[in-house]
Structure formats: structure tokens, C-alpha cells
């Protein structure tokens, strides 16, 4: 029953997504407000779930892939609320909601949540490191969403064929800015996470360090490479999230059983 808030949260995001689709079809802006309310409700329920789970296991809820996915989804929702009302009301929410539904449905349906154990108190710095890293992935996930939106908007502008969603999309310059800001937020969080791991001399396999460093380097280059152009930045931020997701699975595999 402790999964109930997460199930309800997933339903909220699903309803929010449906409301945006309906508002695009009918032009009823009241449905947009309903969408934001559903996103807020879903975020509150996610938070409740993570709090309850943390209390139950006596540990930051990052002890298995199920919890990691729930935490990642919460981080993406946090960044979604953090990057401004204008983006939320102009379809970013519509693109974010299905990602959250996908992450949470995957977490709920896959057999990746073994029976709870009570963990011995861990070094809080280790938990801090894990939380920072997963939050960084949340920012990268949303950067990927902004990247996909940029590419969709750019395609319509370049081809001079404006589809039904065109006038609902945020300005392409704002998407490029949001993309870059999210990349920067992610790289700062990841840097802090890796630095905290290094400062406490966390014992990890060399492959994990290598992956972490590759990921950090790739995102750092992406954030710095302004001359690369907004299109390539958008393309790489969408693609790099796949790399981040792969890294996350590797780290989880490495830590499985011990808790992060």
C-alpha cells in the first residue's frame, strides 16, 4: 500500500497530459489550468511517497532501481516547476508529463522493488552524493525534453509548414535558453555529487568512476560548446540523456543490494 501515492501521482500526470491534449483540441484554456493543477498534485504525491519510503527504510529512497526511477521522476518534476510559468503553460508540461508517466509506470510495473529492508545508518554524505546525482539526471531528462521540443519547433520553422501545435509552443529562443540552463543545472549538481563522492573517498569500481567521468565530461562540453549551435545542442541533449540513463542503470547494478 505504500506505493499508493506513487500510483495516484502517475494518474495525476496522465490526467494532466490528457487535459493538455484536450485543450489543444478544443481551445479551452481552463483545461491548461487543470493540467498545471494535476502536475502540482502529482508532484505533491511523489514527494509524499518518497518521504514515506525514506521513513520506512531509514535511508534516502535510492536503494533500488524502483526508488531511483521514482526519485528521478520527482527531480524532473521539480525542475519542470522551477523553470518558469511561461514554459509550463506552453506545452513543456505536455512533453514532460508523458516522460514522468513512463518513468513511474516502468518503476511500478517492473519487478525491481524487492521487499523492504531496514538499512543500517549510512554515511549521510553517501546519501547526499546519490541524491545530487539523481537530481542531476532529472535536470538532464528535462533538458532532453526541451531539446526534443526545440527540434520539433525548428523543423516546423525551417520547413515553413506550421502544424497545429506551432502556436502553442514556446519561442524557440526560450527553448534554447531553457535547454542550456537545465544542462548547467545538471552539470553543477553532477559536479557536486561527484565531488562529494571523491571527498569522502567512496569505494567504487573503476568502471563506475569512468562512466561518471565520461558523463560529466560529455555534459560539460555540451554546456560549454556555445559555438556548436542550438540545433546540435538540442540534438545532443536529447541523445545524451540516453547515455545518462545507461549510466544510471550501471550505477544501480553496481550498488544493488547495498543501497546507494
Amino acid at each position: 500500500m505504500d506505493r499508493l501515492p506513487l500510483i495516484l501521482s502517475t494518474l495525476c500526470f496522465l490526467l494532466g497530459f490528457a487535459a493538455t491534449l484536450a485543450s489543444l483540441r478544443t481551445g479551452r484554456h481552463g483545461l491548461r489550468r487543470f493540467h498545471v493543477a494535476m502536475m502540482a498534485g502529482g508532484f505533491a504525491l511523489q514527494t509524499l511517497f518518497l518521504l514515506q519510503r525514506g521513513r520506512t527504510i531509514g535511508h534516502c529512497p535510492l536503494t533500488d532501481l524502483f526508488e531511483v526511477l521514482a526519485f528521478l521522476s520527482w527531480s524532473a518534476a521539480l525542475f519542470y516547476f522551477g523553470i518558469g510559468r511561461a514554459f509550463r503553460l506552453s506545452l513543456l508540461g505536455m512533453f514532460t508529463a508523458p516522460l514522468l508517466v513512463l518513468l513511474q509506470t516502468g518503476a511500478l510495473l517492473a519487478p525491481i522493488d524487492p521487499p523492504h529492508r531496514l538499512f543500517a545508518p549510512h554515511n549521510p554524505w553517501v546519501q547526499f552524493h546519490a541524491a545530487l546525482c539523481v537530481m542531476a539526471y532529472g535536470a538532464f531528462a528535462l533538458a532532453g525534453v526541451a531539446g526534443v521540443m526545440y527540434l520539433a519547433q525548428e523543423r516546423q520553422l525551417k520547413r515553413r509548414h506550421l502544424g497545429v501545435f506551432f502556436f502553442e509552443m514556446p519561442p524557440i529562443a526560450d527553448l534554447a535558453t531553457a535547454n542550456l540552463r537545465l544542462l548547467w543545472a545538471g552539470i553543477l549538481l553532477l559536479s557536486a555529487g561527484l565531488a562529494s563522492a571523491a571527498s569522502i573517498g567512496m569505494a567504487v569500481a573503476p568502471s563506475v568512476w569512468t562512466w561518471g567521468a565520461v558523463l560529466w565530461g560529455a555534459y560539460l562540453l555540451l554546456s560549454l560548446a556555445r559555438r556548436m549551435g542550438p540545433r546540435r545542442t538540442a540534438l545532443f541533449s536529447a541523445g545524451a540523456f540516453l547515455l545518462a540513463a545507461a549510466a544510471l542503470c550501471l550505477f544501480n547494478h553496481f550498488y544493488q543490494g547495498g543501497g546507494l
Binding site: 519547433q153 520553422l157 502556436f167 514556446p170 519561442p171 524557440i172 529562443a173
Partner: peptide, 9 residues
């Protein structure tokens, strides 16, 4: 004008 606003905000 609409295109300009969709590009620059």
C-alpha cells in the same frame, strides 16, 4: 510578427 514572436518571444 507572429513568426518573430515564435522565434524570439
Amino acid at each position: 510578427v507572429d513568426l518573430a514572436e515564435k522565434i524570439f518571444g
